[in-house]
Simulated assay, not measured.
Amino acid sequence: MKEGWIEKERVTEAGRERELEKKRTIYIKSDLYPEGEFVPELEARLSVFDRGFSVGDSAYEYARTYGHKPFQLDRHMDRMFSSLKVQRINPGPDKKEFCGLCEEVTKRNISLLEKYEDYNIVFEVTRGDWGWHGRRTPPPEGYGIPTLIVKNNLNDQKLCAYYYYAGVHVVTPSGRHVSPQAWDAKIKTYSRLNYVMADLEARLVDPGATALMLDESGNLSEAIGANVWLVMDGALMTPTDRNILRGQNRNNIISLAKKLGIPYIEKDLQPWHLYNCEEAFLSTTYPGPMEPIGRFNGIMIGNELPGPVTKRLAGAMSDLVGIDVTGQDRLSNEEKTELEKERARLNEERGVMAHIPY
């Protein structure tokens, strides 16, 4: 396969995103927009004293459309409000009203997309503007105006096609995931320096790699924006929710596995399990929802890519959302042939362990 295929696609998608952001609308309510306004994306303003910017005091969610229609927005909103409850932030609008804002922003922007493109639906709440940047304590009750932002960005399933054929390379960085003794990973917040450092370290190993963090006990935790799954002895396994964000697609995978009669187990998993599994994948919203794992710390894993359980779940997920989640329908015949040859080569190498460097 030609080197740089995935890098080229990422550049193409980034260029398309730059085109769209010049035309899109976002919703923002804050001290600068006290009544809430729909404004051009590139004209929106945010106070430099906003606590989401200055200390990461925020919660957010990432839903998406399938076939230009919002998918499970209400479930993402439930998770947003569960985070806000723990953080003691009252956003103002209730769940139904907030969902309405997300739907309205997406409706205003959807005509900008090509038929095969979709949007992520990103909604954010910060504690708002409160004093100069050094004031770390939150405002007293009754003071401060929470900032609400709703926006869209591009989600093109073509990136999924590459991962479906060639697999994701996941790398464990030296640092560990934040312990639940510090804060609960089930809170979805922009305070994510640990993710940033983990991702930077993974890219030093492989520029295309994704970081898969371990917890303080050495168990598999989660990847950057994704939950990890593996199959061993015919059973589908994933880490417990002690130190992960419970992704909505994680919930969907659990439901589909039960529907398909696939044995499902939540347990502590170590790197050993991933090295020796029959197959593995990540579940995520972007580009998502399922990305087979091809290599772990440089070593090919699994018996086949994608594995039989991954294929069954991807088929069921495609039926659920109404489009082909593998992204294969986004490929030209030439691209599909090229990636199929690469998959065959990798699976042959995987079978004889020719990739082991000793």
Rank of each mutant, 00 (worst) to 15 (best):
M1H: 09
I6M: 06
E21L: 13
E21C: 06
K29M: 11
F38M: 04
P40Y: 14
R45C: 09
A59K: 07
F71H: 04
S83Q: 12
C99K: 13
V105P: 00
T106F: 02
R108K: 09
R108D: 10
D129E: 09
W132N: 03
H133I: 11
G134F: 01
P138E: 07
G142Y: 04
Y143I: 02
I145K: 11
P146L: 13
Q157E: 14
L159G: 08
T172Q: 04
G175M: 12
H177D: 12
V178R: 10
P180W: 04
Q181S: 07
Q181M: 08
D184W: 11
K186I: 11
K188C: 03
A198N: 08
D199W: 07
L212K: 04
L214V: 08
G218D: 14
I224Q: 00
A226W: 00
D233F: 14
L236Y: 09
T238Y: 12
Q248C: 08
N249V: 12
N249R: 10
N251E: 01
I253L: 09
E266N: 04
E266P: 08
S283P: 13
P289W: 02
P292C: 03
N297Q: 15
G298D: 14
I299A: 02
L305V: 05
G307N: 03
D324Q: 10
N333D: 10
N333P: 09
E334C: 00
E338M: 05
E340R: 10
K341T: 04
R345S: 01
